[in-house]
């Protein structure tokens, strides 16, 4: 797969990040976006943030979905949010007051979106400045974009230098990602996460395969996440799956984090599921 060398290139440290002695080291600002709603931007953001923090990085997550926030729920922090993004942008709260430390991962912080406000109220320039100031304090600033390509998307993208685009293996989602990549232009070196893959359906030919999606989008592939009931359970509970050390899907998130961090880990693979009891009976026992 052509992805690895490109991925390695994409994460090669830009000049300002080189940790040469006392010079200021700026963190990386990454926007997570998709065009289509409901494909897993927030879940990806929460798990990537968790996995990076578990590696010892300092990570700030920004929920840019003003009016429809969710990242607080997925992280289980909804009761701890006191101030939000707009409070900070409008200077009614300091960034230190607004950042909510994560319950589970040290070094992970959330800046929640305002639920009762509108996206039009966000000043794009102030958003850019906020992300820039967070880059001075964190290794990663990950911005969870709202669905669509309207003002909320533009605000989310404003301060970022890199993009992660999330799609499901469905033609409508792939088309939306293609459009978003076009809108991002040449600045963001977008990398792809393919979410909700069902290997059984790919095998049956009813779902696009990773190769199909890759052939259409031609983006560096960051990771492939299977459609697992575990993901629904953990997001409902507010405990990202990446907190777990075992399991294939948790491992896939850790591999994404490693790749984001610049490690040369093997390309994403989706394994076929274990045969069902029925199939095993017919094949006469376990493989």
């Amino acid at each position: 797969m052509h992805v690895l060398s490109q991925t390695g290139e994409a994460v090669a440290a830009p000049e300002e990040r080189v940790t040469t002695g006392e010079t200021t080291k700026l963190g990386r600002a990454i926007v997570v976006t998709s065009g289509k709603g409901g494909v897993g931007k927030t879940t990806t953001t929460a798990n990537l943030g968790t996995a990076l923090a578990q590696r010892g990085a300092r990570v700030a997550l920004i929920d840019a979905d003003v009016g429809l926030r969710n990242l607080d729920i997925v992280l289980g922090l909804e009761n701890r949010v006191q101030h939000h993004l707009l409070d900070v942008l409008e200077e009614t709260a300091t960034i230190d007051d607004a950042l909510v430390p994560d319950k589970h991962s040290e070094g992970l912080f959330l800046l929640a979106a305002a639920q009762a406000r509108e996206k039009d109220e966000v000043d794009t320039e102030k958003m850019r400045a906020l992300v820039a100031s967070l880059r001075e304090r964190f290794d990663y600033v990950i911005i969870d974009s709202p669905a669509g390509i309207e003002k909320g998307f533009k605000n989310a993208v404003a301060g970022a230098q890199e993009a992660i685009v999330v799609c499901t293996p469905e033609v409508s989602s792939v088309r939306d990602v293609d459009r978003v990549v076009g809108l991002l232009g040449n600045r963001f070196r977008p990398q792809l996460v393919i979410n909700r893959v069902r290997p059984q359906l790919v095998k049956k030919g009813t779902m696009l395969s990773v190769e199909d999606v890759d052939a259409f989008l031609r983006l560096p592939l960051l990771g492939v996440i299977a459609d697992e009931p575990q993901i629904i359970v953990t997001t409902n509970r507010g405990e990202p799956l990446a907190l777990q050390r075992d399991g294939k899907t948790a491992a896939a998130y850790h591999a994404i984090a490693a790749r984001v961090a610049g490690e040369d880990v093997p390309p994403p693979q989706v394994e076929l599921p274990k045969p069902t009891l029925f199939q095993r009976l017919f094949r006469g026992g376990r493989a």
């Binding site: 409901g38 709202p146 669509g148 309207e150």
Partner: peptide
């Protein structure tokens, strides 16, 4: 309708 609660 598009996703979200913006102009669309």
């Amino acid at each position: 309708s598009p996703a979200g609660i913006e102009a669309g």
